[in-house]
Design a protein around this nucleic acid. Sequence first.
DNA 1: GGTCTAAGTAATCAAACGATAACAAGTTGG
DNA 2: CCAACTTGTTATCGTTTGATTACTTAGACC
Lengths: 202, 202
Amino acid sequence: MTISVPLTRMKAGERRELILRAATGVFGTSGYVGATTADVARAAGVSQPYVVRMFGTKEQLFLEVINRALELLLAGFQSALDDTSSDVALEKRMGLAYVNQLKEHGVLLSLMHAFVLGREPVIGRAARAGFMKVYRFLREDAGFDAAQVQNFLASGMLINTMIGLDMAEDYDGDPDVRELMECAFPEKVEMVRELARKRTEG
Amino acid sequence: MTISVPLTRMKAGERRELILRAATGVFGTSGYVGATTADVARAAGVSQPYVVRMFGTKEQLFLEVINRALELLLAGFQSALDDTSSDVALEKRMGLAYVNQLKEHGVLLSLMHAFVLGREPVIGRAARAGFMKVYRFLREDAGFDAAQVQNFLASGMLINTMIGLDMAEDYDGDPDVRELMECAFPEKVEMVRELARKRTEG
DNA sequence: GGTCTAAGTAATCAAACGATAACAAGTTGG
DNA sequence: CCAACTTGTTATCGTTTGATTACTTAGACC
């Protein structure tokens, strides 16, 4: 039973961002179809009809979630690109920028859920466009060649998959999981485990 | 309007396999939550209650679908492993075996949909176990080292993603898509495009 | 301090879905 | 040939869900 009475008022813009963050987490966990507008509302601390009225439809909300996720991702890449202070190689800096997106829950996973819905007319089109936007950034702005991009994206998709699988769940019980995770998230295994713990308990 | 009258009888075993094939395609396209038992029934040419009664629940059906998909995948890998006649390197043979699973629609994609539902208690557990079964096959039976397995799985997850995105849809209109596809499916681009066409038209 | 707008809720609905129950028609074995 | 089991269907039900409508109330502004 949720006590829903007083609720401090916000301007629509703030509330919108708050709901988008909540929705990112929910869609990341349950997927586009599996997530309900009531789940999102609960996570955001507002009523279900308010979520729908603010975004029009669940589909529109999901589109805004994945567009926001793409903006965050590309902004992270741009920062890694701009930061020439460190002597770390570009490809590695970009990889770290990618993994750091895990700190906000659902950013990478809601994208991943969109990526497997290519046959959905509206979402599919948006997902392809978003994916290729990342491709072009890596290819043109970051200056990767085609093979580098392919390799980078492949590693990213494996990371998404392992996060989607909640693989950290089995880290302690299965040495093969440990081996794989240490290979897939170099230097970031502890962060990933910590975040998984927080999500499970909290 | 479906004409549903005469329907030649089958033994339950055959009908089961037929439904599992149909369900593989439907789950691959729409995902676990998005696919309905009525969709599966329509694709299999039987009534919706029959699907439910044969498999108990939709969840159970999905579990059988992904277990079957895993069996097909591992059988394909085993064949590639056994076929020592060709002079093609093992890693490449395994890659071809992977891509050839695309010939049956939904085998790789239904697995992919399972892989992003790690938080679902039952499906998540099965998905992790299945993924690690593949990992162990590559690591132990195929003799890959950890980095090789990571690289192989990463390429596989990128392939899954691009198929899930229905990326072939944009092959003609976007030269970057063409570049990426030629990098991700070496020598198999035409097959992928052909299968995508069949799925779109048929 | 009253008023008017923007921020929110409660109540409710129609559609879709998974599941169940009850029934029909082949097929097989004695 | 008929009884019994298997293969299948039609009809229907209770929930869940996204969406709509109508109502409330906080707070900014004159």
